[in-house]
Design a protein around this nucleic acid. Structure first.
Length: 422
RNA sequence: GGAGAGUUGUCCGAGUGGUUUAAGGAGCACGCCUGGAAAGCGUGUAUAGGCCCAAAGCUUAUCUAGGGUUCGAAUCCCUAACUCUCCGCCA
């Protein structure tokens, strides 16, 4: 959620930055400003009333004490009248306030200056590309055939136990998963991240904190009996650690890493592009999260990008980095880099990481602040990125490293695997 | 799941309807004192808002949360969350 302060004091800049999402939000902003003003005038009126009531109550107390009951009764009547007036004002104010927050919730984050104006994925900028086209033999197969040929993933079995999109990893497939998770975690630890193992069910407040609620309610699995949600990403519990927290400036930046399974309903997406491991309801991901000083956040975003880059290079997978255009960015993001791994047999790019700076958008909802040099509380910036999401990495590895004699796994994984080849 | 007890500021802790404008203590910060430190003394010590160009000042709300009773609620009533103890169940 954008801060009212920004909308009020930097109106022009907010509208300008929002326009990069290829939608004009100026009328919404105008409405917010109007509602804000209306709310404030009601509030002033209400508070003056309350101040009077408080004074009267005190006077009545003193009159009672000195035994002047009749005078007290007169003041009582006055007080009752004031109270009615206050109730009306309070109601009116609450009504305006609700409209205001509703409107605020609907406004996406303002893209950073570096983000290009654009509407669709075609407008995204490729900022980096690395690796060579794998030389595959003529019978090279897509990963969903390899997984069944080598008994790595059983989609049918998952279908039986749970449903489509919940694969069962078996044998070397399961061990590859475990190796990747450990590799990603160790790499993050070496880069200075602190490991967290969070709950994978979260409450409503956490959903609101990172912005999954109310807008993306349909994306999460919801346990209605206990009103808990399955996390769609470790970002939700790990960032919510800092909900309602005031940090010391010297604690920043906080760098956390966590592995969790992730659950996404992905309602309405079926067909060829969800084949095999391309899109699942449950998948594994190692996530890096940073809580940053506002002046340092973009530097740290680049640092995170470098970290993910390093992972891809060690895995030896051809990949590219996109800086998303305004229209393709997530609702809460101010700037996002997507990493795409090349899938040699499918001949297409698969998104394997999304690394973003949310600036104060999440921090505002989370109420995560730090005490700055003037001892004032200031909102932090939050950042996160996948480092990395497993299924599509597995797909790329299997497809790109396949030979007629089997699949040669990346050297960096050997110590984690206990075997080198499938 | 059942029964009981609890939740007050950074922390401890007093407080059963009106000088609570949240006592007192500890911690922390600053100052005095000191050769330096401790002790001692003094001052300060939350959050979110509103009025205001701003500051100063004034003001509202916040004693786990949300409702209610009352002229007036930390205090009384209702609901919920959490913590502790005992019982039950359990990897």
């Amino acid at each position: 959620m954008l801060t009212l302060n920004a909308i009020r004091n930097q109106t022009k800049e907010v509208i300008e930055r929002l326009s990069k999402r290829a939608i004009d939000r100026s009328s919404d902003i105008e409405e917010i400003l109007k509602l804000d003003e209306a709310k404030r005038s009601k509030q002033t009126e209400l508070e003056q009333n309350l101040a009077k009531s408080n004074m009267l109550a005190k006077e009545i107390g003193e009159l009672f004490k000195s035994g002047k009951k009749e005078e007290a009764d007169i003041k009582k009547e006055e007080s009752v009248k004031l109270k009615d007036a206050s109730k009306t004002l309070e109601f009116e104010m609450a009504e305006i306030e609700e409209k205001l927050t509703q409107k605020l919730y609907e406004i996406p984050n303002t893209p950073s200056h570096q983000v290009k104006l654009g509407k669709t994925p075609e407008d995204n900028e490729v900022v980096f590309e690395w690796g060579e086209e794998p030389k595959l033999h003529k019978d090279a197969k897509p990963h969903w055939e390899l997984t069944s040929q080598y008994s790595l993933v059983d989609f049918e079995l998952g279908n039986k136990i749970t449903g489509a999109g919940f694969p069962v990893y078996t044998g070397k497939g399961a061990r590859l998963q475990r190796a990747l998770i450990n590799f990603f975690l160790d790499e993050a630890l070496n880069a200075g991240y602190y490991e967290i193992q969070p709950p994978i069910l979260v409450n409503e407040a956490s959903g609101y904190g990172t912005g999954q609620l109310p807008d993306k309610e349909g994306q999460m699995y919801h346990m209605t009996v206990d009103n808990l949600y399955c996390i769609p990403t470790a970002e939700v519990p790990i960032t919510n650690i800092y909900r309602d927290v005031i940090l010391k400036e010297e604690e920043l930046p906080i760098k956390n890493v966590g592995y969790t399974p992730c659950f996404r309903r992905e309602a309405g997406s079926y067909g060829a592009h969800v084949r095999g491991l391309n899109r699942l309801h449950q998948f594994d991901k190692v996530e890096i999260v940073q809580i940053a000083h506002p002046e340092k956040s973009y530097e740290l975003l680049e640092e995170m990008v470098e970290h993910v880059k390093g992972l891809m290079m060690k895995l030896g997978l051809k990949f590219r980095i996109l800086r998303l255009c305004g229209g393709d960015m997530g609702f809460a993001s101010a700037m996002t880099y997507d990493f795409e791994a090349w899938s040699g047999a499918q001949q297409k790019w698969l998104e394997v990481s999304s690394t973003s700076n949310f600036e104060t958008f999440q921090a505002n909802r989370l109420k995560c602040r730090f005490k700055n040099k003037e001892c004032k509380n200031e909102l932090v910036h939050t950042l996160n990125g996948s480092a990395l999401a497993l299924p599509r990495i597995v797909a790329s590895i299997l497809e790109n490293y396949q030979t007629e004699e089997g699949i040669n796994l990346p050297v960096c994984l050997h110590p984690y695997l206990g075997f080198t080849k499938i």
